[in-house]
Design a binder for these strands. Structure first.
Length: 269
DNA sequence: ATGCCTCTGGGGCAGAGA
C-alpha cells in the first residue's frame, strides 16, 4: 500500500466476474485499491479468474458456487482469518448460498456481503432476506470488538432512506425500501456500526446502482444500495469516500458502480 | 445525457436482478 495515502478499500457488485474481467482488471490498475470486496461473481470458486488478478499483486479469497451469487475479497496487503458464511446463516430452497465472506487485511476486518434481493414483499425470498440480515447482525455482534477496524461492505439490496432512491413514489409496494428492511439496517447500527455515506462525483445523491433499462443511468434514476457499515475505529479513519460512477459508463459495465474509501495510515507501526 | 438490459446455463429461452 502507499503509506502517504493510507489504505484504499472498495466494494463493487460486478454482476459476473468473468463477464466483467476486462473492466475489473483495468479498474484495479487505475484505481489502485488495496482491498476490494466483490459481489455477484456468478461463478464457482474453481472458475474464478485467479491468474489475471494475482498478476496484479492481489491475494484472492472467494466464496462461490456457480450460476448465482458469489462473493470475494481481494487484497494486496494481506488476507488472513478467512470465514465463509455467517453464524446461523439461513438457507433458501434447502441451500445455504455463497453470500458472505470475511477476511482480515492488515488488521482491518472486512466482510463482503451480497444480501438476498427479496423479490417482493410477501415472497418467501423476502422472509429469507430478513432472516439473512438477522444472521448478519449475529455475526457482527460476535466480531465487532471495541477499537477494532471492522466493516461490512457490499450489496445490501436496501435503500436506507427515501433519498437513496431516485423517486420514492416509484417504489410503492417494492422491496428495498420497506420498514422491516430498514429496521434490519437500524439493528446493525445498534450493533455499533455506522453508514459511511460516499460522496457522488456528479449530481446530488451518491447512488451506486442504476438499472440497465430505459436510460436509467443517463437519467440518473439510481439507488444507493451498495453500503459500507463500519465500526467507529473504521469510520473514524475514513478520509474520503466516493462512488466511482465512471465505471457505470460504456460498454460492458456492471449495473453497479464501485464505492471507494481511503483510510488514514496507521498512526503507529 | 455517454446511450434505450444483461447475465448464466446450455444450446431455446427461462430465471434473476431491484
Amino acid at each position: 500500500m502507499c503509506d502517504s495515502r493510507g489504505m484504499r478499500i472498495a466494494t463493487w457488485n460486478v454482476n459476473s466476474i468473468t463477464a466483467r474481467l476486462p473492466r475489473v482488471l483495468a479498474w484495479l490498475r487505475s484505481a489502485q485499491p488495496d482491498v476490494v470486496c466483490l459481489q455477484e461473481l456468478k461463478c464457482g470458486a474453481d472458475a474464478f479468474p485467479r491468474d489475471e488478478i494475482t498478476e496484479l499483486g492481489y491475494d484472492i479469497a472467494c466464496h462461490g458456487s456457480g450460476r448465482w451469487n458469489g462473493v470475494a475479497v481481494l487484497s494486496r496487503i494481506g488476507l488472513d482469518d478467512l470465514t465463509r458464511g455467517l453464524i446461523d446463516e439461513p438457507s433458501y430452497d434447502g441451500e445455504i448460498e455463497p453470500r458472505a465472506i470475511g477476511a482480515t487485511c492488515d488488521g482491518v476486518r472486512v466482510w463482503s456481503v451480497y444480501v438476498p434481493n427479496g423479490r417482493e414483499p410477501g415472497h418467501p425470498h423476502y422472509a429469507y432476506k430478513l432472516r439473512w440480515l438477522a444472521a448478519l447482525r449475529e455475526t457482527v455482534l460476535a466480531e465487532n470488538e471495541p477499537g477494532r477496524p471492522f466493516a461490512v461492505l457490499g450489496d445490501f439490496n436496501i435503500a436506507p432512506t427515501d433519498d437513496d432512491v431516485w423517486d420514492i413514489s416509484a417504489f410503492t409496494g417494492s422491496t428495498h425500501v420497506t420498514e422491516p428492511e430498514r429496521d434490519a439496517l437500524a439493528a446493525l447500527r445498534e450493533a455499533g456500526l455506522s453508514d459511511v455515506v460516499p460522496r457522488p462525483l456528479k449530481y446530488d445523491y451518491p447512488y451506486t446502482y442504476w438499472d440497465y433499462r430505459q436510460l436509467a443511468f443517463p437519467k440518473n434514476r439510481g439507488m444507493r444500495i451498495d453500503l459500507v457499515y463500519a465500526s467507529g475505529a473504521f469510520a473514524d479513519a475514513v478520509t474520503d469516500a466516493y462512488v466511482d460512477r465512471e465505471e457505470r459508463k460504456g460498454k460492458g459495465a456492471s449495473d453497479h458502480a464501485p464505492v471507494v474509501m481511503d483510510l488514514a495510515p496507521h498512526s503507529t507501526p
